[in-house]
Design a protein around this nucleic acid. Structure first.
Lengths: 291, 291
DNA sequence: CTTATGTCTTTCATAAATGAAAAACATACT
DNA sequence: AGTATGTTTTTCATTTATGAAAGACATAAG
C-alpha cells in the first residue's frame, strides 16, 4: 500500500466541492487536464472509484463520499494553519464595518480605499447596527453616534441628511405608497420612519435597504433614503423636503490600540478623505450631477 | 496569501520526525536535494523559518514546532484514511520481500507460513537487493545485513553459509566449469564469487539464480549456492569446503509502525519459526536428508 | 592533528508533469 | 432538427521538478 501524496487529497476535495474538473482547476491553479489525471491517479492509489464521471461534471460515489467526509478534518487543520500564517504576517486583513449605503459608496469608490498593491485584504461587513468593533470583530467602523467607549478613537466626517425619494417623473398614484423594511429589521431611525408616520400606506415590505432603492427606481412607491444615495441616482427625485428629524452626524471609529497598525491607519485615512469629500452630498446639498 | 500544497506539509512532517533530509527523503521516496528544496519553498510560503539547519541535520524552530503540533491532526486523518483503504481491500495483503532462495524455501514450506484460512493474501516479491521496505513497498523482509534504519524492527535468524555445488557423481570434465549470473545481475557476494575467483572458467552465464540450480543439477558445471539449497537437493553434492568468506547473517525486518497489524505479525512470526528451525541447515551443517 | 564519515547544498542532465489545443460528447436553447 | 455552450478526455510540445554526482562542511575517531 503506497503512501498517497497529500496534495492528491487537496485536489480531490476541490473536485468534490466544485462537482467537476473546471471549478477545481480554477481553485487550485491547475488545468482541467491535470486535475483529471491526478484524480485518476488517486483512484488507482486508493483502489476505489471515487467519482462517477459525466460530460456535465463529476459526482461522488459512495466511496468518494466516505473519503470526502474523512478529509474534512484535514481541511479544518489547514484552515487553522492558514489562520496561524495570517497571524504570523501581522495584519494582512482590515475589516470595515459600515451600514448599507456607506458600504455601497465605498464599493463605488473602491480605488480610493484599497488597491491590490496595498498588500492587505479588505473585508467589508454590512451592518445597520452600531459599529462597536467589539471583540476585534472589526478594525474600522462608520457610525451615526459619537462613541463614548474609552477604547475607541473617532473622527467626525459631517452630517447625514435624509429625504423621501420616488421615481423621477412617476405617475402620481403609485408614488405615494410607502416602501419599507420590516419592522424587526428597522433598526435605524430612517428605516423606522415609514412605520411611525405612514404605517397604513406601506405597500411593500423588504428585508434589505438595498431593495428600497431598487423598488423606488422601478416606480413602486417612495422610500426614505440618505440624500447622498437618492440625489446621486439619475432615476430618482425627492418626494418632499429633507426629513430634518432624521439628520445625524457621522464618525469613523477605530480601536485606540490599533493606531500603530499601518493598514488600519491607511484605510481609516482614506475613508475619512472619501467621506469628507462627499460631505455636502451627505448633508443633502444637491450635487451638480457631474460627480 | 497563496494556498500551500498539502504534500509540502507531508514532507515537512517527515523532515521534522527524522531530524534531517536524508531520513525524510527515504521515507518519502524522494532525494535529499528535493526535500531540501521543498522545505525551502514551504518556509517561503509560510513566511517563517521552520528549521534551524546544520550539517548534522535539521532542528525545528519555535515556529516549526508550532506547525508540527498543528499538523499532527492531519497525520491522524491520513492514518484513518489508510485504515479505510486497507479495510476496503479487506486488510488482505501481506507482502514478503526476500531473495531467490528464501522465497523458494518459503514456497516449499508454504503451509507453515500461510493458509487460505488466514484471510489475507500473501504477495512474495523476489529481489536480491536489500529489503528496505521503503515507501511501503513491502511489509516483511529478509536480508543479509542488520538494519540500521530507525523505522525498521528486526530479528536475527542465524547465519547463511555458501559452498560450490555440482551434480552428484558427475563425470569430472564438466563439473569444473563455472556457472554464474551476469556481472550486472551479480548483486550479492556469492553471485560475484565466480567472476572474482574464476572468471576465465565461467562456462555459462544466466540472468537468474534459479537457473544456476537447474544447470548444476543437469551437470553443466558447478555453481555457488547457499548450503540450505544445495545440501537439500539429492541430485547435488558439494564441490569443496564451505566458502567461509561468503558467510553472512540473516534478519527478518518489519516496519515499526506495522507492529499492530495482525497479519504482518503472523507472517513474520511464522517466517521466523521456519528459518529458525532450519538454522543448522542455513549454517551449512549437513542435514540427514529426512527433513 | 589528520582522516573518515555523514549530511547538506548546488549544478546539470533527464524524467515527469503540465497546459494548450483539438476532439468528443452531453445538454440547453431556438 | 440544428446550433450554441459547457465539460471532459486525449495528444503533443513545453515547462518544471527531480535525482545523480560533486563539492562543502561539521563532527567523530584514531
Amino acid at each position: 500500500m503506497k503512501d498517497i501524496s497529500w496534495d492528491a487529497y487537496q485536489i480531490f476535495l476541490a473536485v468534490a466541492r466544485h462537482g467537476g474538473l473546471t471549478g477545481a482547476a480554477q481553485a487550485n491553479g491547475l488545468s482541467p487536464a491535470t486535475v483529471g489525471r491526478r484524480v485518476l491517479d488517486l483512484e488507482q492509489g486508493i483502489g476505489r472509484q471515487l467519482f462517477a464521471r459525466s460530460q456535465t461534471g463529476y459526482r461522488l460515489t459512495a466511496d468518494g463520499q466516505a473519503l470526502f467526509e474523512q478529509l474534512q478534518a484535514m481541511d479544518a487543520v489547514v484552515r487553522k494553519v492558514d489562520g496561524w500564517r495570517q497571524e504570523a504576517h501581522g495584519a494582512s486583513v482590515v475589516r470595515l464595518m459600515a451600514g448599507t449605503w456607506v458600504t455601497w459608496l465605498v464599493c463605488e469608490n473602491i480605488q480610493a480605499i484599497w488597491s491590490e498593491r496595498d498588500g492587505f485584504r479588505l473585508d467589508m461587513s454590512v451592518s445597520e447596527r452600531r459599529a462597536t468593533l467589539a471583540h476585534r470583530q472589526g478594525d474600522v467602523g462608520v457610525r451615526a453616534v459619537a462613541p463614548e467607549e474609552p477604547h475607541l478613537a473617532s473622527r467626525h466626517t459631517g452630517d447625514v441628511a435624509y429625504a423621501a425619494y420616488r421615481q423621477r417623473n412617476a405617475p402620481d398614484g403609485l408614488s405615494s405608497a410607502w416602501l419599507a423594511v420590516s419592522e424587526e429589521d428597522a433598526i435605524s431611525p430612517y428605516l423606522r420612519f415609514p412605520h411611525q408616520q405612514a404605517a397604513a400606506s406601506i405597500a411593500v415590505i423588504v428585508s434589505r435597504p438595498r431593495s428600497l432603492l431598487d423598488l423606488t427606481r422601478a416606480g413602486a412607491g417612495q422610500a426614505v433614503l440618505p440624500c447622498f444615495v437618492g440625489d446621486l441616482d439619475p432615476g430618482l427625485e425627492r418626494a418632499g423636503e429633507e426629513l430634518k428629524q432624521l439628520r445625524h452626524g457621522q464618525w469613523i471609529v477605530t480601536n485606540n490600540e490599533d493606531r500603530h497598525r499601518r493598514e488600519i491607519r491607511t484605510v481609516s485615512e482614506r475613508l475619512f478623505r472619501l467621506l469628507k469629500s462627499h460631505a455636502d452630498l451627505f448633508a443633502g446639498k444637491r450635487p451638480s450631477r457631474s460627480l
